[in-house]
Each structure stands twice: as C-alpha cells, then as structure tokens.
C-alpha cells in the first residue's frame, strides 16, 4: 500500500509541533495500524530520523494505552475498536491519513502522539475506588446482586480509560469516562457505601483539571471503543443531585 501520512511531530511538551508528511509504501492491508507505524519507524530509524513516538501496550484492546486521532476520529474509522485493533484494510491504496494526538487542555502532549493522561488517574484517586474490605472472590459471591444490575455495572466497568471520549468531545469533557467509573460502583452494594462522597469528589476533581462541560452531544458514545453509553452520564447526574440534596 502507498500512503501519505501526515503525522503530528512535537519534540517535547514545550516545543511547537507541526505536521510532517511521510510518503510511505511499506504498509500492507494485513497490518494493524500500529504495525504500520512500527514499519514506518523502522524505516525512519534506518534513515537516522527520530521515530514517531506513540503509546501502546497490550495491542489487544484492553489496556487503553494506544490512542490517536486518525482522520478525524479517535481510534480511527471503525466502530468500537481501539487503535491497536484498527486494521489497515480500513484504508485504500493512495489514501492520505492524518494522525494527531488527543487534543485537550487536560491532556498535554508529551511527545508526538503521546499525551499525558495523568488527569484520569487523578480523578480515580479522588474517589474511583471502594475502601470496604470485600474479601476474596468467593466472599463477594455471598452477596446477592440482581442480574440486571450486575450486567449494567459490568458494561460500565469495561471502560479502559483510553480518553477517546475526551478526544471526541467538542468540549473535551471527561463526563463519559467519569460516569462509567461512577456507575460501575453505584450499581453494586459494595460501591453504594461511599457513593455520595465518590460522585462529588470525582466531579470536583474533573472540573479542577480543566475538562469541559457536557453538552449531551454524544460524540463520546459514538467513538468509545467499549461502547460506554450516555445512560451512564444521566446516572452520574442523578447520583450527583441525590448526593447534594441528601449528603
């Protein structure tokens, strides 16, 4: 495949970045998008050019490390997949592909396509946990949980914290991520105990970190690789109001 890659290159957090165009013919339709970038980097290294820096780890869609804005979509075209799962079959020979880092005030660029997502960790540290001792796996099975609630909590818990929701949102809002982290606990008896403090602390932290407000646009839901739904955001809102009204 012959591709024209327009990739955001930025030396470090303080440098002024720019798009660099690479005419690259070393891709094949069997490659994943990251393998294509690996091939490009091999070529760059051989030519003694600094390779393109990008985040990745599991390469099987579960860690949330990979993430870039490809041709106007976080994680590229294709529904419910991460960048590592994106196949080069989605592109045609001769395509021009824009590759950009997540853009948000709360996610500053570290280098090239790598952004600093510590903001998500800070939100989690503010309340995304439970402090009760729930024992080991058999113990938690002793606590009956309604099937529908367990399923819903699980659907929220599949969020991998990749940040595509922030990248997709016109306001760089983190509401989808935070709402998934709220909902996965709010639906379970172990999580209910601290539910009220949790929602207030996490929303407060999210605001402090400079994420935008939610406009209920739904770009996050459309682009989320794990199909986290806006229903979570409505739940967060409800949890928040209830916590405020009866703390």
């Amino acid at each position: 495949m012959k591709l024209t890659l327009k990739i955001w290159r930025q030396k470090n957090a303080d440098a002024k970045g720019k798009f660099v165009t690479y005419d690259f013919d070393g891709a094949s339709p069997d490659m994943s998008f990251l393998e294509m970038l690996d091939a490009l980097n091999t070529k760059l290294i051989k030519a003694r050019i600094d390779p393109v820096a990008f985040d990745h780890d599991c390469r099987e869609g579960i860690c949330g490390a990979c993430g870039m804005y490809i041709n106007g979509h976080p994680h590229g075209p294709g529904k419910a997949i991460t960048t590592c799962h994106l196949s080069m079959r989605e592109f045609k020979d001769g395509d021009t592909i824009y590759v950009e880092p997540w853009r948000a005030k709360a996610f500053p660029v570290v280098k090239d396509l790598i952004v600093d997502r510590t903001a998500f960790d800070k939100i989690q540290i503010a309340g995304g946990f439970i402090s009760t001792n729930v024992g080991s796996a058999p113990d938690s099975h002793a606590l009956p949980v309604e099937k529908s609630k367990a399923d819903e909590a699980f659907n929220s818990a599949v969020c991998i914290g990749c940040g595509a929701c922030v990248a997709a949102c016109k306001n760089a809002s983190a509401m989808l991520f935070v709402s998934a982290k709220i909902a996965q606990f709010a639906l379970l008896p172990q999580g209910r105990i601290e539910a009220k403090e949790r929602v207030q602390a996490m929303v407060k932290k999210m605001d402090e970190l400079g994420f935008g407000n939610c406009s209920n646009t739904g770009a996050c839901e459309a682009e989320c690789p794990k199909e986290i739904s806006l229903v979570n955001i409505a739940r967060l809102n409800r949890e928040f109001y209830c916590a405020k009204v009866s703390p």
């Binding site: 106007g72 005030k105 809002s173 739904g218």
Partner: peptide, 18 residues
Amino acid sequence: QNWLARPARYKKTAFSQT
C-alpha cells in the same frame, strides 16, 4: 469554558453519530 478546554484544535475533523 468548553472552548478553553480545547486550546489546540484538530486539523482534520469528521462527523460522528451525534
């Protein structure tokens, strides 16, 4: 506030189902 949350814009944007 929403504008301030995204100081650098994307070069290439596409429409998602919104």
